[in-house]
């Protein structure tokens, strides 16, 4: 498993692709998912953005 934090996203994904699911370290998975979701939720076609100041 690649541990160097400077490895590219492409390399990290390649490793995730090759490694058996049960052997993927959670920290590496979390890092990838947070990176992928880093600023995408509010983008065009993204999830709801409730601007009104109430929970409704």
């Amino acid at each position: 498993m690649i541990e160097n934090q400077q490895v590219s996203m492409t390399e990290r994904l390649s490793e995730l692709r090759r490694r058996p699911l049960g052997e993927i370290p959670v920290a590496r998975a979390v890092d990838v998912t947070r990176t992928v979701l880093r600023h995408r939720e509010d983008a065009e076609g993204g999830v709801e953005v409730a601007r009104f100041g109430s929970v409704a």
């Binding site: 492409t10 994904l13 390649s14 995730l16 692709r17 699911l21 993927i24 959670v26 590496r28 998975a29 979390v30 990838v32 998912t33 992928v36």
Partner: peptide, 17 residues
């Protein structure tokens, strides 16, 4: 597509954890 598959695998690991 391979990158997307790897991302899905990462998400499953986090969900399962």
């Amino acid at each position: 597509a391979e990158s997307q598959l790897a991302i899905t695998r990462a998400m499953l690991v986090e969900v399962a954890d």
